[in-house]
Amino acid sequence: MDKGNTTLAFILLGLFNHTRAHLVLFVLVLTVAFASLVANALMLVLIHQDHRLHTPMYFLLSQLSFMDMMLVSTIVPQLATGYLTGKKTISPAGCGFQIFFFLTLGGGECFLLAAMSYDRYVAICHPLRYPVLMSWPLCLRMTLGSWVLGAADGLMQALVTLNFRFCNRHEIDHFFCEAPMLVRLACDDTSAFEYAMYICCVLMLLVPLSLILTSYGLILAAVLTCVPQRREKALSTCSSHLAVVGLFYGAAIFIYMRPMSYRPANHNKVVSVFYTVVTPALNPVIYSLRNSEIKNGLRKCMARRASIQ
């Protein structure tokens, strides 16, 4: 058995078959992906052009939109190319880049959501000290830290995963390169790396999630003593972020906090579509529906376009 063959291309088995029902699902996924790119790009433009949105809160939101755009752009082109052309191969380098960017963006989003929850905590519980406790230098450091921590995780897992020997098995039962799926193909003993990868994923999820829950626990304790009008406004402000956190962490925990032996490939594919395509499309919708400043900015942008024409 060839135990040193790590240069051959991998084969992504994909998500859809060439049936009429799967063709409809494929078109639906592409439509949602395109809507995600447009909605997040529009969010970025609005935040950039409207000076009233030049605050730490909206800067963090713009980073979330940018991460979502990059995530869709990392996953969907390979999915579409494989289905439309039948060319399902991907080089080891391409596979490594997919693992790196997927984990960088996923891990970065974990910490970014924690930073956004801290921003909401300061804004609601310490509004008079907001410029000090949520200063621009701190906001930039938290944003940079989110990117760096995500990139460190992505680089480590990509390098270690591709250094395994894969024998003659190169078929990945997924629509993109994901480290846990790739490890299954290795003919080396991967138990130590699987354990380390599991611990790393748990920490990347639970540490930010614990910070988010702490922030919202303090927010809840503070708003319960407020007058009803202020309480309603505070809860409305937080509801969008909580909805995004629920969508993101629900899918991520379902995938990464189960032992590998309890991860059926078909279930993983469906959930992966949800958090790589559907969730990035829902995030800007959730934030815009409950945010009057974004809706006002959109109206003004459309009015300016209409006046120019």
Rank of each mutant, 00 (worst) to 15 (best):
V207N: 06
A196H: 10
L30I: 00
H174S: 13
M197K: 07
G217T: 06
V270D: 07
M134I: 02
T31R: 11
V277S: 07
C226L: 09
R299A: 13
R304L: 14
S36Y: 03
Y216N: 03
G297T: 11
H174T: 03
F16K: 07
T214Q: 07
F248S: 04
N168H: 10
C139Y: 06
A281D: 00
G246Q: 01
F97Q: 09
N268A: 13
W147K: 02
A39I: 01
C95V: 06
L84C: 08
P56G: 07
E293Q: 15
A21I: 05
V227F: 02
L289E: 03
T7M: 14
V132W: 08
T31M: 15
M260W: 11
H170L: 04
T55E: 09
P127W: 09
L185T: 06
F102M: 06
L218G: 02
K300G: 09
T81W: 14
L42F: 14
R230H: 09
Y83T: 01
T143Q: 08
I90H: 01
Y249M: 03
V285H: 05
G82R: 07
A114N: 02
L298H: 09
I199Y: 09
P280K: 04
S239P: 00
Y195F: 15
L185P: 02
M116N: 03
L13A: 15
V278T: 08
T143L: 13
C139P: 03
G108S: 08
V72S: 02
A35V: 07
I286M: 13
N283P: 00
L209W: 09
F97T: 12
G297A: 12
F176M: 11
S191E: 12
C125H: 01
F34M: 08
L13S: 15
V245M: 06
V72Y: 04
H18F: 14
T19V: 08
L15W: 07
V38Q: 08
C301M: 15
T237M: 10
